[in-house]
């Protein structure tokens, strides 16, 4: 009965997030999913360092585009419920017309655990998070590496972790602003649902593996240039993403692939072929 009440409470807390409609595609969130945020925070005084290598490929109408954006991210636990962090990426872009690379957009982030219920061998959690993207990437070169704008994203994540089973859900909204060159990327909305299983109940000090399946829905409003909507921008996409975690004590390797199952893009745009990500996480 208690378990059911806890589950209902978590769902009730997560529900507003679904109504509000994060740009967390490059975020590493402690022991959470790979392509979406989770509710975990690092312990008080703990430091988490993540080296990530997200990669995406687009092809089809218009220009094809390959993007590799390796990053280093540092998170620090102010309390057991509250963490702050910074992410610094470097971006390589290869389009059919031009290629280039440079500093990506630096992101400052924070996450606060709103609620937690500890049970023997299990935890329910819910957290709110926010990310501030700074315009550190060049928005003038070809290809363009960033939007040149300072953008704010926020959302809510909830989840359940047990020895065997996992589930997470999250929703986020990215509020994008106009950059120096007059381009305003469209606001973005994200909804995610994740299920996972640990096939072998390994003990502390043993290698541990968890497999998960994420469903990631994204929607973008149309971009604007000097106030005018751009026809061939925006739309919605749904991805199915098999991912894994492998951990040993304070080391984790996480990775996965996002495969599009539905793309409803405005006008003529290249489709997402796939996105991949590999992360190495270390706790101090």
């Amino acid at each position: 009965m208690m378990k059911r009440k806890s589950a209902i409470l978590v769902l009730a807390m997560a529900a507003p997030a679904f109504v509000m409609t994060l740009a967390a595609e490059n975020a590493a969130w402690a022991h959470g999913p790979v392509f979406s945020p989770g509710p975990e925070t690092i312990w008080k005084g703990g430091t988490e360092v993540t080296v990530a290598a997200p990669y995406s490929r687009q092809s089809g109408p218009g220009a094809g585009r390959d993007v590799l954006e390796p990053s280093i991210e540092i998170e620090y636990g102010l309390t057991e419920n509250w963490q702050i962090g910074i992410e610094a990426p470097y971006k390589f872009v290869d389009t059919s017309g031009a290629d280039g690379g440079g500093m990506g957009d630096v992101v400052l982030d924070t996450k606060y655990q709103l609620w937690k219920k500890d049970l023997p061998g299990a935890q329910y959690k819910a957290a709110a998070f926010a990310r501030l993207k700074l315009p550190t990437a060049s928005d003038t070169g070809t290809p363009r590496l960033g939007s040149g704008s300072t953008d704010l994203a926020g959302g809510i994540a909830a989840g359940y972790e047990s020895r065997r089973w996992y589930w997470f859900t999250s929703a986020a909204y990215s509020l994008n602003n106009k950059g120096g060159s007059g381009l305003e990327k469209g606001d973005r909305q994200f909804l995610n649902a994740v299920g996972g299983v640990r096939p072998i109940l390994s003990e502390y000090g043993e290698p541990d593996t968890v497999f998960m399946l994420e469903l990631n829905w994204e929607r973008s409003d149309r971009d604007k240039l000097n106030g005018l909507s751009l026809a061939n921008t925006g739309g919605s996409e749904l991805f199915i993403s098999p991912v894994f975690w492998w951990t040993y004590r304070q080391i984790a390797v996480k990775g996965g692939v996002q495969l599009p199952v539905m793309q409803d893009l405005n006008g003529t745009q290249p489709d997402n072929d796939y996105r991949g990500k590999l992360e190495l996480v270390y706790h101090f």
């Binding site: 975990e40 312990w43 061998g121 299990a122 000090g205």
Partner: peptide
Amino acid sequence: GLACPFCAYG
């Protein structure tokens, strides 16, 4: 709340 070895490092 002990559900995973990685989290237990804390």
